[in-house]
Design a protein around this nucleic acid. Structure first.
Length: 260
DNA sequence: AGCATTGTTTCACA
DNA sequence: TTGTGAAACAATGC
C-alpha cells in the first residue's frame, strides 16, 4: 500500500497521536527491519525521550526527539503505522486465548501505557536512527515547476522509471506512476528527455492532483485506474484495451489509444 | 504449484 | 563515470 499518500497519512497520525509521550520501552528485535542496528541499539537511544515532531519527504518518514536521535521510519512494501489501536486487526490467535500482533516489527511503548508500532507483513519496512536523507529528491507533491522540468525531463530511460527514481523526485511508486501517466495521457515508455515543457507541466500537475486525491480518499488504491490494471482491462475513459509490460522494472499498464 | 506483489539496495554491465 | 536493468531481499495472496 505505501506510496507518498500512505506515508503522509502515517506522518499525520504520528503528529496527531505520537508526539510528547515518554518512551519507556522499545521492541527493536527484528534485525532485518532495524538493520544495520543490533538489537537494543534503538531502545538504548530512544528510551527516556519523546517524539516532538513528525516529518516526511517522499515515502521517507522521520521523527525528531527531544535532545535525542532522529527516528527514521519507512513503510516499505506493506507497512503501516498503528498507534494505540487494539481494534486495527492483523491479530493472530495463539491457540484460542490470546491474540498476538505478530506483524509488529518495531514498537515504541509509552509511559501512559500506549504504543506505536510499525506493522508490516512483508518486513521490507525500516526503522533506523538518524536516517540518511541526502539522496532523496524533492517531494513529488511539493516540487515546483522549473525544478520538475529540470530533473524529470532528461535521460534516455523510460519516463516511468524517471518519475519513480526517488533521487529525482521522491514519493511516486508503481501505482501512482501508472495513475498519473494515465491521467496525463503520456506513454510510460517514452524517453524522459524527449518530453517538451508542456508535457512535463501536465505530468507534474497530474502527479500532484493524483497524490492529493489519494490522500483525501485514503490511499493509492483508490485511484480510477486501479481496477483496470489487469490483463484484460480496458481504459475507464475511452474503452480501449490496456497494454501490459514491464517498464522500469515494474509491471505497467497503459491505455493503448490515449497515452502517447 | 507457480506467479505476482504498492519498495529499496546491490551488483553486473554497457 | 554514469546510467540502466536484473536480482535479491521477505512474506503473503491469488
Amino acid at each position: 500500500m505505501p506510496e507518498l499518500p500512505e506515508a503522509e497519512s502515517a506522518r499525520a497520525l504520528i503528529e496527531e497521536r505520537g508526539l510528547g509521550r515518554e518512551i519507556v520501552a522499545v521492541d527493536d528485535g527484528d534485525t532485518y527491519v532495524c538493520r544495520p542496528h543490533a538489537p537494543g541499539e534503538l531502545a538504548d537511544a530512544l528510551i527516556g525521550h519523546r517524539l516532538v515532531s513528525a516529518h516526511r519527504q517522499g515515502k521517507a518518514l522521520w521523527a525528531q526527539t527531544d535532545d535525542g536521535p532522529v527516528l527514521g521510519l519507512h513503510l516499505g512494501m506493506a507497512g503501516r503505522i498503528v498507534i494505540d489501536d487494539h481494534a486495527a486487526g492483523d491479530y493472530v490467535s495463539d491457540g484460542g486465548r490470546r491474540h498476538l500482533p505478530v506483524w509488529d516489527r518495531f514498537t515504541l511503548h509509552f509511559a501512559d501505557g500506549g504504543w506505536m508500532a510499525l506493522r508490516d507483513k512483508r518486513r521490507l519496512g525500516r526503522a533506523v536512527l538518524d536516517p540518511d536523507l541526502t539522496r532523496l529528491g524533492p517531494d513529488a507533491a511539493m516540487v515546483d515547476r522549473d525544478t520538475f522540468r529540470r530533473r524529470v525531463g532528461r535521460g534516455e530511460g523510460p519516463l516511468k522509471a524517471r518519475i519513480m527514481d526517488q533521487s529525482v523526485i521522491a514519493g511516486v511508486g508503481n501505482l501512482l506512476a501508472d495513475e498519473a501517466l494515465w491521467r496525463a495521457c503520456l506513454d510510460p515508455r517514452r524517453p524522459a528527455g524527449g518530453l517538451d515543457a508542456g508535457e512535463l507541466d501536465r505530468l507534474r500537475r497530474e502527479i500532484r492532483a493524483t497524490t492529493r486525491r489519494a490522500i483525501e480518499r485514503g490511499g493509492v488504491h483508490t485511484g480510477d485506474l486501479i481496477a483496470h490494471r489487469r490483463r484484460d482491462g480496458v481504459c475507464p475513459r475511452c474503452g480501449a484495451d490496456m497494454a501490459r509490460a514491464t517498464v522500469g522494472g515494474r509491471t505497467t499498464y497503459w491505455c493503448t489509444a490515449e497515452q502517447r
